[in-house]
Design a protein around this nucleic acid. Structure first.
Lengths: 206, 206
DNA sequence: CGCGACGTTGATTTGCCTCAACGATTGTGG
DNA sequence: CCACAATCGTTGAGGCAAATCAACGTCGCG
C-alpha cells in the first residue's frame, strides 16, 4: 500500500453519495472540502472505548470492525465494514458522549472522514445532505434490523451460512477468529461447524 | 376506549416532532393533512408477513409489536412500541417489497399513519422533514444498535434486568409470554429466572 | 360455565462454551 | 535470514445455560 495519502481520490465517496441523489458542482465541492482522508494501519484504533466518536468514516480501501469487549474479556463484533461502507458509533457521535465501542483496522485501511461540526455545516449549507444522509442511515437501519433478526431467530450454523451469502468478499480476508466474533460463537465451535459442513457437503468427487 | 376516532388529537405527534425541530404553521398543517388516525383492536394485524408495509405508524395510545415467526413456529419480537413511538418495517416500506415481519396489537391501539407517497410529498413540500426524519431514524438506529449489542453480549438474566430498566412502563402491561419472546427465551425459562431472582432479592421483611 | 391461554415446576436433552493440548502459520526482533 | 514467540485452526473431554416436553392449577373471557 502507498505510504502517502496525497493521491487518495475522493471519487469513490462522490460516486457512493450520488447513488442516492445526484449532486451539483457546489455540493461536490463541499464534499471535497469537508472530508479528509486518513490511513489506519492494521490493528490501529480508529475509536477507543471511552472516547467520543468525533468522525463519520467512509472506507475507501481496507476493512474495519466495531466491537465491544464484555466483562469476561470476550470480543463481540457489531459491524464489519469494507470498501464503500460507513462505520462509526452513531450514538456517541450524535450525543457527544463516550463510546462503549472500539473500532480498529483488520487491514491497512484508507478512510474519508468528516467531523461532527463539518457534517452539521454540510447539512446547513446544502439541505440535500439531510436527505442523502437520511437515506444512508435508513439503509444502515434496515441492515442492522436484518442482523438483529438473524441473531435472535437463527442457530449458529444458519448465521454462518448467512454470513457466507452476505459477505463473500470478506471470507478470504478475515481470520476464523474474526468471523467467529462476528457470528457470536467461539472459534472452536466455528471450527467444528465448518468441519461438519465439509463432511456433509457434496461428496460428488468420490 | 372510545369507539370513534373523530376526536383523536394529532397533538401528541406534533409535540413529538417539534422535539427535534420547531415547525412553522405551514408544516404543522401538512402534518395534519397527511397523517390519519386509525384504531387497531387487541390481536388485530397492522402488517402481515408477505404484505408490503405501506404506512409509517406513530402510536398515540396502546401497544404494538413487530415480530418474526421462524420455521419451528417460534415467535421472535423485534420491537415493542407504545405511546409516542414509531413502528413499521422500514425495509419493506422503502423498497416496496413483501415484509418478513408481522405487526399486531397487544392492546387496543390508536395510531397516526402516513403512507409512503404522502411521506415523500412531505419531504418535497417541506425539506425540514428530511432533517426531522433523519434525526428520528438516527435515534431508532442508535436504539437498535444498543439492543443488538445487548443481545450478543449478555446472558438472559442480564437482558431481563435491562428490560426492567428500559421498559418500566410496559412490565405490567405485557404477559410473560410476550416479554419472553422479546428477550429471546422460552416462557418457562423466564419463569425460572424470575423465581431465582425473587428468592435472592432483598429478604428485608423477614 | 367451560375452554383456552397463562404461569409454574420437574425431568431430560442439547447447543454451545470452557479448558487443555497440539501442529501449522505468521510475524518479528536480533 | 533465522529463531523464537505469538496467533491460528483444530480436536477432545467435560460442563453449563437454556430448550424441550410434559403435567397441572389458575384465571379471564366468551
Amino acid at each position: 500500500m502507498k505510504e502517502t495519502l496525497s493521491h487518495t481520490s475522493i471519487e469513490p465517496l462522490l460516486e457512493h453519495l450520488t447513488k442516492s441523489f445526484p449532486l451539483n458542482e457546489k455540493e461536490k465541492e463541499l464534499v471535497r472540502e469537508k472530508f479528509h482522508s486518513r490511513l489506519f494501519r492494521k490493528r490501529q484504533f480508529v475509536l477507543q472505548e471511552g472516547d467520543v466518536c468525533t468522525q463519520f468514516n467512509f472506507i475507501v480501501r481496507g476493512c474495519l470492525r466495531s466491537y465491544k469487549i464484555d466483562e469476561k474479556g470476550n470480543v463481540h463484533i457489531l459491524q464489519l465494514a469494507a470498501e464503500n461502507n460507513w462505520i462509526n458509533d452513531l450514538g456517541s457521535f450524535h450525543h457527544v458522549k463516550p463510546s462503549a465501542l472500539n473500532i480498529d483496522a483488520l487491514e491497512d485501511t484508507v478512510v474519508l472522514q468528516i467531523s461532527r461540526d463539518d457534517l452539521i455545516s454540510l447539512y446547513i449549507n446544502a439541505p440535500k445532505f439531510d436527505r442523502i444522509f437520511r437515506v444512508l442511515i435508513e439503509n444502515g437501519f434496515i441492515h442492522l434490523q436484518e442482523r438483529l433478526l438473524q441473531n435472535i431467530s437463527s442457530t449458529a450454523e444458519e448465521r454462518y451460512q448467512s454470513f457466507l451469502d452476505l459477505y463473500p468478499h470478506l471470507i478470504n480476508r478475515l481470520s476464523q477468529v474474526q468471523i467467529a466474533a462476528f457470528l457470536g460463537v467461539t472459534p472452536e465451535f466455528l471450527s467444528r461447524l465448518r468441519n461438519i459442513r465439509s463432511k456433509s457437503a457434496k461428496p460428488t468427487k468420490s
